[in-house]
Write a protein that binds this DNA or RNA. Structure first.
Lengths: 209, 209
DNA sequence: TTACATTATGAACATTTGTTCTTAAACAAC
DNA sequence: GTTGTTTAAGAACAAATGTTCATAATGTAA
């Protein structure tokens, strides 16, 4: 292995960190070089230009843990877990905002969302649609098995997903000011408890009659 | 009225539009001048520097319609409207994403959220906390009147608020790519219907017995 | 009309920034 | 060790950018 690989990775990571922190446009090649410990001109031995670093970061987003809240499991394999599954997914979102790597990816995504069309495509297809569609299938199967009440599965998926995203954004935002995230962090679990309680089919409590 | 007022307003609006579109850092004084129809140097007759424009925009956010989803009404005056109130609030969010002025403000806020501490303070205090707290009170009063089931009012407020914010972001994001927002737009109403149905106290259907 | 203040212009400047180029050092293969 | 390739340094450049300044144009008040 040549020394290239190591330096290139360092550049990549420094750039990602800085892009997430202050945005692509506000990050300079000199800053990136400084973080890595080389002069800015040496960066060009590893990347064609500044935009090539950005492109490579976006390329790799799809392979990251930022989006894989289902851990590659298919809905029909897991839907029977019911509430436990929702808890698990909810916890994935929480972990994303607390893991240094995924937190950086999330912040990067939000930073550049309106400035990069490819990133919006990624957000829409991989981060949003893919997960919401999988959630839809999960809820649909749960309805078939009479675990939850029958409604529009896509609506349920959106309603379950939206607060998780929002709380995630809250955490990342609070961390930007070094504020306490404790209160926001509890909302992940509370959301799941609340949500499940509202959609599950309550057993006909026969003891009443 | 001097001609100053007109030009200053034009500069302010052009800057806001550009900041929302491409971000503060990526917007140049020359672009702002071009939008207004003057040379960049003339801007300095109205604003001390580029940052002063940004500061003034943030100053004015608090007076904008972006945050005033309660239209200055107090919870106890309106909570009795029940579901109709939630519909009204939900509709406010929808309108924000479709009104050109507030849509720009929202996009600006999201663009600069991680780059400006004052903006984060505004987001937290005026956009989030203020509204969620008011919502809490609304839900608390609804519980007292036995309109909805008793739970943590603050949780309810967050659960009602989060999807509205998320759908708002979806709309603004879709508009950035000139994509159709129809499907996302329906979610505002569906959210309210779903949410209300899950929290309201179902009348004991005495005909069953 | 005169006098004063406000605003726009055009040129200019100092920095910053992305990028290139030449040269030297570090490394790998033989 | 020699040779060829890869990588870093340093200088340099052109373009972009925020800002200033002197001057001219415009508007206002008497």
């Amino acid at each position: 292995m040549s020394k290239t690989a190591g330096t290139k990775k360092k550049i990549y990571e420094a750039a990602l960190r800085l892009f997430a922190l202050k945005g692509y446009k506000a990050t300079t090649m000199r800053e990136i070089g400084k973080e890595v410990g080389i002069r800015q001109s040496a960066i060009y031995n590893h990347f064609k230009n500044k935009e090539a670093i950005l492109d490579e970061i976006i390329d790799n987003l799809a392979k990251s843990n930022l989006i894989n809240i289902f851990e590659d499991k298919e809905p029909k394999e897991i839907y029977k877990k019911g509430k436990a599954l929702l808890k698990q997914i909810s916890n994935m979102f929480k972990l994303i905002s607390y893991n240094t790597e995924t937190d950086t990816l999330f912040r990067f995504m939000m930073q550049e969302l309106f400035n990069n069309e490819r990133l919006r495509v990624f957000y829409n297809e991989e981060f949003y649609q893919k997960n919401v569609k999988k959630l839809s299938v999960v809820f649909f199967l749960m309805m078939q098995d009479e675990m939850i009440e029958a409604t529009d599965p896509l609506l349920l998926a959106n309603e379950f997903f939206a607060p998780l995203f929002f709380y995630q954004l809250q955490i990342v935002r609070l961390k930007a000011d070094n504020k306490s995230t404790a209160a926001a962090a509890t909302l992940f679990e509370k959301h799941t408890d609340f949500f499940w309680d509202k959609i599950r089919i309550k057993e006909k409590n026969s003891t009443l009659f």
